[in-house]
Simulated assay, not measured.
Amino acid sequence: MTSLSALTLPDHTQLPESDGTFVKNWQEHPQSVLLTDSISPVIEALHPDGHYCIGQDLGIYWRLTDPPEKGATAPDWFYVPNVPATLNGLTRRSYVLWKEYVAPLIVIEFVSGDGREERDRTPPSQGEGGSVGKFWIYEQAIRVPYYAIYEVTKALVEVYHLVDNAYQLMQPNERGHYPITPMGVELGIWQGFYPNAELPWLRWWDAEGNLLLTGDERTKVERQKRKRIVEKLRNLSPEQLNALGIDPEMLD
Rank of each mutant, 00 (worst) to 15 (best):
L64M: 07
Y79A: 01
H29S: 13
D76K: 01
P84R: 03
C53Y: 09
C53P: 00
A85R: 13
S38C: 08
Y52F: 15
I54P: 00
D11Q: 02
F78E: 09
W77R: 10
P30T: 06
H29G: 10
S18H: 08
L34M: 11
L35C: 10
K70M: 10
H47R: 13
P67N: 05
W26Y: 07
L46H: 11
H29V: 14
R63V: 05
G55W: 03
V42N: 04
D11F: 00
T91N: 13
A85F: 11
P84G: 15
P67A: 05
N82H: 14
G71P: 00
G59M: 01
V42P: 04
E44Q: 15
W77Q: 12
F78A: 05
G89Q: 07
I60M: 05
T36A: 14
S38I: 00
D37I: 03
V80F: 12
W26P: 15
W62M: 00
I43M: 13
F22K: 04
Y79Q: 03
D19K: 06
I60H: 09
V33E: 06
V33I: 15
Q56S: 06
V83N: 08
Q56L: 01
P16Q: 07
L64D: 15
T73H: 02
L58K: 03
E44I: 06
T65S: 15
N88L: 08
P10W: 14
T73C: 13
T21G: 02
V83L: 10
A45C: 12
H29D: 07
T65R: 14
D37L: 06
A45S: 15
G55V: 02
H29L: 09
P75C: 06
Q56R: 12
I39Q: 05
H51L: 05
V83F: 06
Y52E: 07
D11T: 12
P75H: 04
G20Y: 05
F22D: 03
V80N: 07
P41I: 10
P81Q: 10
V33W: 01
G50F: 12
P41G: 08
C53G: 03
W77P: 10
P68E: 08
I39G: 05
P30H: 07
V42D: 09
Q31G: 15
L15I: 09
N88E: 13
L90R: 14
C53A: 11
P68C: 00
I54H: 08
T13P: 00
Y79P: 06
I43E: 11
F22V: 02
N82T: 12
L15G: 06
E17N: 09
I43S: 12
L15P: 03
R92Y: 15
F78S: 09
T65L: 12
S38M: 00
L64K: 15
S40H: 01
L64Q: 14
I54M: 13
V23E: 09
I60W: 02
V33A: 14
E17R: 13
L64H: 03
S38Y: 00
L35A: 10
W77K: 10
W26R: 04
A45V: 12
G89S: 08
V83G: 01
Y52P: 08
V83S: 05
R92F: 15
D49F: 01
V80H: 12
A85S: 13
R63G: 10
S38E: 06
Q56V: 13
N82W: 07
